[in-house]
């Protein structure tokens, strides 16, 4: 009997630790990074690799003096204010806007999925008989830049509602994606952004995952970017780098990954659009 009780207790403990909730996950990540970078204050994580890369930071600060994403913000404002063919506009879909980036990603109970800002924007367009925007490149980055700029200073506060098990399942799915090694090079997100954070691939310092989602969309000066791109475009690029077939932008896999990844940044201030190498 005693043995049975012990084994039951062991089972329960393992079940609990395997099913660590979002808050336990976030705390574990923060504890890990604090151990690696004891002198980096929490709010600095919103600056990504520049929180831990003093040389890169100098360049970055110089770039931010004349932000390359400014024209995107301006074009985005025009988009936001211009009515659709039916006379309605984004303002009608998002009455609280344009400073709404901190409300995403969120669990959408009615549709039973993780709602991201780009998906919400396209659902608005669809409801008003407008063609959807592409999710990686192009004009979606204009309106996202404008919304991000207007949302600066808002605090990330992703929730995984406990009363809808589908929300937790989506979070868990994103977490699973994060820790799964994929592609011919056999890396997971965690291989680079947890296990080897702060170390360098060639000259690039690997950034911590806490802070990954605060600054999108991002202007990258990299040759094959040279423009502002979305978070899911970045996911695609990461997956290609490790020689995995990328998932569909705004498909369930990447949205669930965004859900998990965004939860890790809870408490940080939004500071998009961003500029990166």
């Amino acid at each position: 009997m005693k043995k049975l009780l012990i084994s039951l207790a062991v089972l329960l403990v393992t079940a609990v630790s395997a099913q660590a909730g979002p808050e336990e996950d976030r705390m574990a990540f923060i504890k890990y990074y604090k151990g690696k970078f004891p002198n980096v204050p929490m709010e600095e994580y919103a600056n990504g690799a520049y929180a831990i890369d003093p040389v890169g930071r100098e360049n970055w600060e110089a770039i931010e003096e004349f932000p390359p994403y400014e024209p995107f913000i301006d074009r985005g404002q025009v988009m936001w204010e211009k009515p659709f063919a039916n006379g309605k506009g984004y303002k009608d879909c998002f009455p609280d806007g344009p400073a709404i980036a901190h409300n995403y990603p969120r669990w959408d109970r009615e549709q039973g999925l993780v709602m991201t800002l780009p998906l919400a924007l396209n659902q608005c367009r669809k409801a008003n008989s407008e063609k959807p925007l592409k999710y990686k490149k192009g004009p979606i980055n204009d309106i996202l830049s404008y919304i991000a700029f207007q949302s600066r200073g808002k605090v990330v506060n992703v929730e995984v509602p406990k009363d809808d098990p589908r929300a937790m399942a989506a979070y868990e799915d994103g977490k699973k994606f994060y820790f799964t090694r994929r592609g011919q090079l056999n890396f997971s997100c965690a291989t680079c952004h947890v296990q080897n954070t702060g170390l360098k691939v060639r000259t690039e310092i690997l950034s911590p995952s806490v802070g990954h989602i605060t600054h999108w969309p991002v202007y990258r000066s990299k040759v094959d970017w040279g423009t502002v791109g979305t978070l899911h475009r970045r996911f695609t690029g990461c997956n290609k780098n490790i020689r995995a077939k990328p998932m569909k932008a705004q498909g369930p896999e990447y949205r669930n990954l965004e859900y998990f990844l965004s939860y890790l940044s809870n408490g940080l201030e939004l500071n998009g659009p961003g500029a990166r190498k």
């Binding site: 080897n196 060639r202 690997l206």
Partner: peptide
């Protein structure tokens, strides 16, 4: 290999 390892005088090596 240089992406992650220092090798002789190889240019811009990583340190993973």
């Amino acid at each position: 290999c240089l992406a992650c390892h220092m090798i002789e005088d190889g240019e811009s090596p990583g340190n993973i």
